[in-house]
Design a protein around this nucleic acid. Structure first.
Length: 152
DNA sequence: GCCAACGTTGGC
DNA sequence: GCCAACGTTGGC
């Protein structure tokens, strides 16, 4: 089992969307960055645990934990011309983008703020604390996961 | 809303 | 395959 951190704007999808329907998987769609796509495709497996990180909002930071219940499959939104994630250059024969399904595990009692994450030297290798990093799907190693859990 | 940092596109 | 121009991300 591996650990990950996924970024999301809570106005699009927040930890509360998971918490409000704890038995319903949510399709993690709309990843349109190749580096992040490759990790969804090659790395993210069923059973893995995922920190949900809220970005571009008032309370930036790690908000909760979800679990992967379905690993890589073609992101359906890329074929939906009504979706903002539609990609005319993608085809069902050769899909370009990947989705996974996540299910609620737990909400943290308080958001672990970006400031708090930055204040831990042990997390300096985590892309999310690095200036200018735009990676929206990133691996979290065991030590980093434990470090973050101790910040709860 | 600003803007720095970054990723992608496309002309050459 | 270079790189300028452009569009996007995301903290502030």
């Amino acid at each position: 089992m591996a650990y990950w951190l996924f970024k999301t704007e809570p106005s699009e999808c927040s930890i509360d969307d998971f918490a409000n329907a704890p038995d319903t998987p949510i399709v993690w769609e709309g990843v349109r960055n190749y580096q992040a796509r490759n990790m969804l495709r090659d790395g993210v497996k069923s059973g893995d645990k995922v920190f949900i990180y809220h970005s571009s909002c008032k309370l930036i930071g790690v908000a909760g934990i979800t679990r992967v219940v379905r690993s890589a499959y073609p992101d359906p939104s890329q074929f939906n011309s009504a979706s903002i994630y539609f990609d005319s250059k993608s085809s069902t024969d050769n899909p370009r983008w990947i989705a996974v399904d996540l299910i609620f595990e737990r909400k943290l009692p308080a958001i672990i703020s970006l400031d708090k994450l930055k204040s831990s030297a042990k997390l300096s290798g985590l892309p999310v604390v690095q200036k200018g990093s735009r990676l929206s799907v990133m691996p979290v190693n065991e030590a980093q996961w434990q470090t973050i859990m101790q910040l709860v």
